[in-house]
């Protein structure tokens, strides 16, 4: 069962997460009495990488317009910095005493801290990306809400001109997102809802056209046509709301995986 909810996050964190777990187990079981190696060089490399990461992260926070990202990201950066300091301290302690138990503990804590901090960073970014897709979905929902006040062909043409690029964007982004997800059920739900939206959109436009034509002829059936149009717009809205709901899911239901 996957632990990370996107393939990108999984590919970055899974290998290092496994290594950390393995080493923690080794340390717990070992107590081998062997001296620890000099880790100064690799720890220094990690510290340098963290300095760069923090620099990039801070500049991203400053330039971002996403208030939630601005709010969540600093804590993740602090976590990574603190973890790097633990690794540095451990390395210094091991230089003095290669058998130091507190140094080993600091190493494990530092490694875990880096893992947790980088994981939080990636999640902050991922959530921000999801919010962008949701904004696009909400734009489509806003257009759908307008469908029932369209009464002329000119307005319908404008409606289609406005809706089409948004729908294309939503379709592309949701499709891309569904391919990124590790959770099979979420992936399938997104694909199914997106397919429905794509199938329903030309039918909705057609129903709007029929309503306008009937309205022009002053026929009584216009009520029925309006009902049909509203039903289709409602169906599309429901599918989009479901897409928004699933986009925000990051937890796993083990039963679904079983």
């Amino acid at each position: 069962m996957p632990v990370f909810h996107t393939k990108t996050i999984e590919s970055i964190l899974e290998p290092v997460a496994q290594q950390v777990s393995r080493l923690v187990i080794l340390h717990e079981e070992a107590e081998d009495g062997n001296a620890m190696p000099d880790l100064e060089k690799p720890v220094l490399a990690v510290s340098r990488a963290v300095v760069n990461l923090v620099k990039v992260g801070r500049s991203t926070i400053e330039s971002s317009e996403d208030s939630l990202l601005k709010q969540d990201m600093p804590a993740a950066l602090l976590r990574v910095e603190a973890a790097a300091r633990l690794l540095e301290e451990a390395s210094s302690m091991l230089k003095v005493d290669p058998y130091s138990q507190p140094a080993r503990k600091k190493l494990i804590e530092g490694a875990r801290g880096i893992l947790q901090g980088t994981s939080s960073l990636l999640l902050c970014f991922d959530e921000s990306e999801v919010r962008k897709i949701i904004r696009e979905c909400k734009t489509v929902l806003d257009y759908l809400a307008v469908a029932e006040v369209i009464e002329t062909m000119e307005d319908l043409i404008q409606f289609v001109k406005d809706l089409s690029p948004c729908l294309t964007k939503v379709s592309r982004e949701v499709d891309h997102r569904s391919q990124e997800l590790t959770h099979q059920v979420h992936r399938e739900t997104l694909t199914r809802c997106l397919d429905s939206v794509k199938t329903l959109s030309p039918i909705l436009i057609c129903s709007m056209k029929i309503f306008i034509q009937i309205l022009r002829q002053h026929c009584r059936e216009s009520d029925e046509a309006a009902e049909n149009r509203n039903y289709l717009a409602g169906r599309m809205s429901d599918e989009l709301h479901e897409i928004i709901r699933v986009l925000q899911l990051t937890t796993y239901d083990e039963d679904e995986w079983d």
Binding site: R22, N34, M36, P42, V56, L122
Partner: peptide
């Protein structure tokens, strides 16, 4: 354990670089 820690720190270094790349890519 000796090899393990060196390998892990190398992996951690790589992970941090990958995270940095992700941030830079999405930011651009």
């Amino acid at each position: 354990l000796r090899v393990g820690w060196e390998q892990l720190l190398t992996s951690i270094n790589r992970t941090i670089n990958e995270v940095e790349n992700q941030i830079l890519t999405r930011d651009s």
